[in-house]
Design a protein around this nucleic acid. Structure first.
Lengths: 233, 233
DNA sequence: CTTATGTTTCGGAGAAGACCGTAACACCGG
DNA sequence: CCGGTGTTACGGTCTTCTCCGAAACATAAG
């Protein structure tokens, strides 16, 4: 058995508000400094440092020294998936008191955001829906797959997909990810990551500072409409 | 954002040793009484009762009254997936002190066990490998799929698969699940569950009391060899 | 009705852990 | 070599939460 103690320790690490906030902040996929994470969690740098040391020791975050900064990121996609899993449950909880005022920050997040390394929110779901509608993908809650035409389309856009099994297969299995705000699956995993980084590289979207939200640029709107037929509301 | 508070609350619930033990016990997929869970966690019934009430309130476990017993089970497959995700990380942690003596109980678990609703351990992985080798399935870390021949095979064995999209598609996407003891993917999700329950129903395997381990019966050995070409070491 | 079993509620004791202030330590740029 | 900034270590306070004993409640059986 995965020792209950080890299980509890990992979960307990994620179960403290300050550390939880840091993990969520790291879900934007970038590496952040201890100071940034301290601000994100609303604690002093000393406190954050202690938390980060513990999480690093447990293999939740990886640290990279660079000059006088120490960049922290999630240790692996597996950790991101664990965080996703917890968020999934947390999101299905009945809201204790329905927040009447949903800030603009929330609205931006629901519209488009990153989920570790891929796109989520209405944008992520719209992208997934568009691919399915055009026969480029099959997406179910448990698994997903790019069809041959989907692989071709992405290749024609210059998105280089990882090539498992020498990439000789026309179809390509990929990971679905249940969107917590839309409650519908979107594309995650390596394919989702490739799509997301391509959108960023092409300037179709850009990150909004200090948040996991992303903004769709004017050029992005046009590109998404032309290539995928998406018009984001 | 999924409020950090909600996220932390869920993780904290899973992060207390007694509750963690209960969640792990519930991963065998059956509904257990409060008393059984108390024993599994090594606490008194009063303590367990309190924990279970909190977890039920948070939507982690579902309760069903039956006479003077109250049966508790994981509230949803999503919760099982969250637990799996945490176990994944806990399993990759460097073992603090390598346990030299691995009990027979551990050996049984590594050989064959249930993972919420499907098979895991060497049996689960061998089953997955056999299906892949025979061209009945494609399994990758991120996603998996039964091929047309796989769907036919299972149908011919009398395993009724869930039929998404009216089941008119020959192929069937399904969920891979990384085995924590074997570190390789096996079949989970609805297809894995169908396979597992069929094995149980046919008497090919039987549960070992008080554990997530299962034993392969003599009849099961033969059936697994005949239908899938599996010889479990 | 009475007894036995399973479960929940209540209250207090005890332990664990988060937090910050202060101070020391590393590294960059000049 | 020397400020300035980002980060880590230490010590003490404080809150939080787990845990069990005792007792009440619910249900089934005799």
């Amino acid at each position: 058995m995965v020792s209950t103690a080890a299980f509890a320790e990992i979960a307990a690490l994620a179960g403290e508000p300050a550390r939880a906030a840091m993990l969520q902040a790291l879900m934007e996929g970038r590496a952040l400094t201890a100071g940034e994470l301290a601000r994100a969690a609303g604690v002093t740098p000393q406190t954050a440092s202690g938390h980060l040391a513990r999480m690093a020791g447990a293999g939740l975050v990886a640290v990279e020294k660079q000059g006088r900064h120490r960049y922290h990121r999630l240790a692996s996609p597996a950790v991101a998936q664990m965080v996703e899993g917890i968020m999934q449950i947390a999101a299905t909880r009945p809201a204790p008191v329905r927040r009447l005022v949903v800030g603009p920050r929330d609205e931006a997040l629901r519209r488009a955001r990153t989920c570790y390394d891929h796109l989520a929110g209405r944008l992520g779901v719209a992208l997934a829906d568009a691919l399915v509608a055009a026969g480029h993908a099959e997406i179910e809650p448990e698994a997903a797959s790019l069809t041959a035409s989907g692989v071709d389309l992405l290749a024609s856009l210059g998105i280089d997909l990882p090539s498992p099994a020498a990439g000789r297969r026309a179809r390509m299995l990929c990971r679905p990810c249940l969107d917590w705000s839309e409650r519908r699956p979107h594309l995650g995993g390596a394919v989702g990551a490739a799509l997301c980084s391509h959108c960023l590289a092409q300037g179709w979207i850009r990150r909004i500072e200090g948040s996991r939200a992303v903004a769709v640029t004017r050029r992005g709107e046009e590109a998404l409409r032309r290539h995928f037929g998406i018009v984001l509301t």
